[in-house]
Computed example of a mutant assay.
Amino acid sequence: MHLAFTVDLEGTVKVWNCQDQDALATFPVSQACFSLEVCLTKDGPFLMVGNSEGDIYTLTVPELRGVSKVHAFKYTVDLLHCSPDKKWVFASGTHQNILPRVFFIECLLKPSEGKSPLSLSIPFSSCCRACWAPRRTSRITLMYRRGSSKKTGFTTFDLMTERTGGRTVIQAHQVATFLLPVHMESPIWMGASDGNMIVFESGPYLFLFTISGHQLQRFEDHQRTIGNLWADSLHVLTTSMDDSLHVYMWEEEGRYPYLKSCCHLEHIGSDLTPSCYVSKAICDNVSIVCVVSKNRESSILVMYSLHT
């Protein structure tokens, strides 16, 4: 839709058409916001915003008209992720006392007066990252850290709805869980493909594991710590603090899909000085967009065309 969404320190949400210097619409949340999620549904596009009070706002696009407001937690909503089929929205905070919740999106888009939206708390605290499986739309994998040693683990759930006693309830069935070895540096980012594998970084390395904890691949394409990872059903992108970008593709041969290393781009941009900030990259199967921030005052936007 050629639109971009931002939120400032005062909690004002804005939508931009990327051509005019003025925002198309604004919506005051009045609290700091740490999560934005755009959801393209059969009923149109919506924006979901999580704030520091634990509220989730659902707004129309591009008007930013309020549709619903739900109080999800006592703490900040740090994570918001819509499922690929737009049936669910996952919400969580990184506070250790928060249990993640999954909402039935239709209840947020068409709220019923006096009724709480259909939701389910997932019995796994200390969630620090989550991702839906692009090819298995009701499967979600959570990354969590627990204990004084902050051990990192992954747990995977399948979600479903069921009619019981004349009402609909959400059920979550745990299908796999495992802890990483204690010697591994705790990852920050993760991604998924077919629902049976997860990809994550650890230091300068990229790993591919099954959801049960079996290591399939390890890549050593970066010299410095991987600072950002982005994944969809086709590609995985990694960037490191030396401004290098590496591109991988999912391959479908054999029992499990695996990652194929495609290309490595060194020193993004003309400035060879390493960044003080982590570069970020995304891909749409036609092009790659990468943001490199050298300092607080300026960033470089780099675009690449993909050719196969």
Rank of each mutant, 00 (worst) to 15 (best):
Asn196Pro: 03
Gly191Thr: 05
Tyr258Asp: 05
Met241Ser: 08
Leu216His: 07
His246Ile: 13
Arg224Lys: 13
Thr239Val: 11
Tyr248Asp: 04
His222Cys: 08
Trp250Ile: 06
Trp250His: 07
Leu229Ser: 02
Leu206Ile: 12
Glu201Tyr: 01
Met197Glu: 06
Pro257Cys: 13
Pro181Phe: 06
Ser202Pro: 01
His222Lys: 09
Pro204Leu: 08
His222Gln: 09
Trp189Arg: 03
Gly213Ser: 05
Pro204His: 10
Pro187Trp: 03
Tyr248Arg: 05
Trp230Met: 04
Val182Leu: 07
Asp243His: 06
Glu252Ser: 12
Glu252Arg: 10
Pro257Ile: 11
Leu234Arg: 08
His235Arg: 12
Asp242Lys: 02
Asn196Leu: 09
Val199Trp: 02
Thr225His: 07
Gln215Pro: 10
Ile198Ser: 05
Ser193Gly: 15
Arg224Phe: 12
Asn196Lys: 13
Pro187Cys: 07
Ser193Tyr: 15
Trp230Ala: 06
Ala231Tyr: 00
Thr239Arg: 00
Arg224Gln: 14
Val247Lys: 00
Trp250Phe: 12
Thr238Ile: 09
Trp189Asp: 08
Tyr256Ile: 01
Leu234Trp: 01
Pro187Tyr: 05
Ser186Thr: 13
Val182Glu: 13
Gly195Glu: 09
Asp243Leu: 03
Gly254Gln: 10
His246Lys: 08
Glu251Leu: 07
Asp243Asn: 15
Ser202Asn: 01
Thr210His: 08
Tyr256Gly: 00
Phe207Val: 02
Glu252Leu: 12
Leu208Thr: 12
Phe209Asn: 07
Pro187Val: 05
His246Gln: 12
Ala231Lys: 01
Asn196Glu: 15
Asp194Thr: 12
Arg218Leu: 06
Ile226Asp: 03
Gln215Thr: 12
Glu251Ser: 14
Asn196Thr: 14
Leu234Ile: 03
Phe219Cys: 07
Phe209Met: 11
His246Glu: 07
Leu208Gly: 00
Gln215Leu: 14
Asp221Arg: 13
Thr225Arg: 11
Leu208Phe: 06
His222Arg: 08
Asp242Cys: 04
Gly254Glu: 14
Leu208Tyr: 01
Phe200Gly: 00
Asp194Ser: 11
Ile198Cys: 04
Ser244Pro: 02
Ser193Asp: 10
Thr239Trp: 02
Gly254Ser: 15
Ser240Asp: 15
Val247Glu: 00
Glu253Pro: 01
Ser240Glu: 05
Pro181Glu: 14
Asp243Glu: 08
Val247Tyr: 00
Glu220Asp: 15
Ala231Phe: 02
Ala231Gly: 04
Ser244Gln: 06
Ile226Gln: 02
Phe219Ile: 10
Val182Phe: 11
His246Val: 15
Glu253Leu: 12
Ser244Phe: 04
Asn228Met: 03
Val199Gly: 01
Val236Ile: 12
Thr238Asp: 06
Gly195Tyr: 06
Pro204Trp: 04
Met249Ile: 05
Ser193Phe: 12
Gly254Asn: 13
Arg218Asn: 02
Leu180Glu: 03
Thr210Leu: 04
Pro257Ala: 10
His214Ile: 11
His214Glu: 11
Leu180Asp: 03
Ala231Glu: 10
Pro204Ala: 14
Glu220Ile: 12
Thr238Gly: 03
Leu234Phe: 07
Phe200Lys: 00
Gly254Leu: 11
Glu201Asp: 13
Ala192Ile: 05
Ser240Tyr: 03
Thr239Tyr: 02
Leu206Trp: 00
Phe209Ala: 02
Arg224Thr: 15
Leu208Lys: 02
Ala231Thr: 15
Leu216Asp: 04
His235Leu: 09
Gln223Pro: 01
Asp232Ser: 14
